[in-house]
Design a protein around this nucleic acid. Structure first.
Length: 257
DNA sequence: ATGCCTAGTGATACTAGA
């Protein structure tokens, strides 16, 4: 089974690219982030035509997450728990074939310092609490999405330029480490321990052509899924397509149980 | 230190992204 995560950066603006990629790679499940569309503007017709059912949590202008699946899917949560005043659409969760799949779009947090950065750290704390609850259930779990955290120096083309960026601030990395300390495995890194891997290249300065990227889209696996892990890869070529997102799709393949 | 680019909103320059 192939499971992917893709920050599309506008699900309607990128619909041709999304459909082209779905047709090309036929993932079983896809976590989408940055829909940038309200609930009623989700392109369900085209998604269904491509062979998927979908659940989504939209929002006007910004954010928005969705899960697409070729198999039966049961929604288990929409919205990150822990703060009733937080109305951002940044988390949706479902069970597919016995696997709990959490799809997240973690706040960017820039500029640092400031209220957006504080919001990011609070969100990470709430997410870590929720992840712990899932971990304690001892069920197979995949946490996939745009984490907006560069875990280590080798995950950014020029780390010295990013020290005061919310994606690479020590506080952000420490919060990510705290989450990982629960026992999750970073799928891409565990399959490619010594490689430079990026999942994002900004639109400025010809970043993709220069491979000036960041690794910020992650797959965190529970032990039961790790045992079944066959592959973890980035569809880097998709970033080179016309009218493409600034993120590339990331995917894992796991053995059937 | 900043813009470089791109999408969304709504009809203008703006916010937001990372």
């Amino acid at each position: 089974m192939k499971i992917a995560t893709y920050n599309v950066n506008g699900v309607n603006g990128r619909l041709p690219v999304l459909l082209r990629w779905l047709k090309e790679t036929s993932p079983d499940v896809v976590c989408l982030q940055e829909l940038k569309a309200p609930e009623e503007r989700f392109p369900l017709g085209a998604i269904v035509k491509a062979g998927y059912q979908a659940i989504w949590h939209g929002q006007k202008s910004w954010n928005g997450v969705a899960i697409l699946s070729r198999h039966a899917m049961k929604e288990t949560r929409r919205g990150l728990p822990g703060d009733p005043e937080d109305l951002h659409s940044r988390y949706i969760e479902a069970v597919v074939k016995g696997i709990t799949i959490g799809c997240l779009y973690l706040p960017n947090g820039n500029p640092y310092p400031g209220p957006k950065f504080e919001y990011k750290l609070k969100w990470m704390k709430r997410f870590t609490t929720h992840a712990k609850k899932l971990w304690n259930k001892k069920v197979p779990v995949i946490l996939a999405g745009d984490f907006n955290v560069i875990p280590a120096e080798r995950d950014v083309y020029k780390p010295e330029r990013w020290v005061n960026d919310a994606l690479f601030r020590v506080e952000s990395r420490a919060a990510f480490s705290k989450l990982m300390a629960q026992g999750w495995t970073d799928a891409l890194r565990t399959r490619h321990p010594d490689e430079i891997i990026y999942t994002f290249w900004d639109y400025f300065r010809n970043a993709y052509a220069r491979n000036a990227g960041l690794r910020i889209d992650h797959f965190l696996l529970s032990p039961g899924i790790l045992k079944r892990l066959k592959k973890a890869e980035v569809d880097m070529h998709v970033r080179g397509w016309e009218k493409t997102s600034d993120h590339a799709p990331v995917w894992i393949e796991i053995r059937d149980r």
